[in-house]
Nucleic acid binder design. Structure first.
Lengths: 152, 152
DNA sequence: TATTGTTATACTCTATAACTATA
DNA sequence: TATAGTTATAGAGTATAACAATA
């Protein structure tokens, strides 16, 4: 009930826990993502935000924060960074003068297209050893894991 | 090629990316872990450290840091916290006067046994909707994902 | 020379609370 | 009253660089 790794260390029950493997995979995927995106200096969170703004032009910061699961106060600096880099614009909302309508700039649109290609390359990298069927199985199982917890 | 979620938001290519699902699962699992461990105030990282010390008494801080993938300077505060709480002891190493031999205190041993039971309950929680076979499949796929990246 | 534990320091990501301007 | 964006602040969790003691 306790396995020794390559370093001769006993990892106990850890290797039998799904939570342990999810955490390790997340760290490794994150590191690989950063390697792939190094020249663009884009984090997974920033890519997600650009994708959501690109697909939902006019989105407000609060709606965006809710969609990605962070506080709206946290979103401020995130948008600041993307705006300073000229990728995102805060437009005046025509409906509500309190909120901003977020849109990608022309440069942001172009950049997002480049990033998508890189992300797909990153995915091919991390999934190199899995068949197409196994990738779908993995996504399906992870989705059910997440949904199970979001219900509870 | 772009799916709208329950909030009417277009998530673009995100739901097709394994990286996206790994990240979401990790966040959800972490939150559930903290809920289960709330009364013990133990993080996943601390549980891992206690497990490794418990299974490898006499381990040095540097070896432990390497095993869990953090810097040895970061390990200092981690052990400090567990030592203040009376769970871990820094013994003098008989072989090398520079290093500490880490061991669980009697209280640490007892605590770890309690924590293991809670962690197994946590695992049952998050895996409630998966069959035994699916759990093994998930662990297997995540392991291969991580190993693929650690090789690269 | 190299390694162990340590400190000082900083950076990232996150949250909460309070403010302002609107609604 | 309530909401959108913002600011100030704080807390994890992490890293790097330099140091003393020891190897």
């Amino acid at each position: 009930m306790s396995a020794k790794g390559s370093g001769g260390i006993d990892y106990g029950i850890l290797p039998g826990l799904v939570g342990y493997h999810v955490r390790r995979a997340q760290i490794a995927v994150f590191a690989e993502f950063n390697r792939t995106m190094a020249e663009h200096q884009i984090t997974p969170g920033q890519f997600g935000v650009l994708t959501l703004i690109g697909g939902n032009p006019g989105l407000t910061q609060s709606a965006l924060a809710k969609a990605v699961g962070i506080e709206r106060s946290t979103m401020v600096a995130m948008i600041d960074g993307l705006e300073v880099r000229g990728l995102v614009e805060r437009r005046d909302s025509p409906k509500d003068r309190r909120s901003h309508a977020l849109v990608l700039s022309a440069a942001g649109e172009a950049r997002l297209e480049q990033l998508k290609k890189l992300v797909l390359r990153h995915e091919r990298q991390i999934l190199a050893d899995l068949s197409l069927e196994e990738r779908q199985t993995l996504i399906g199982l992870l989705s059910r894991l997440t949904r199970t917890m979001e219900r509870a």
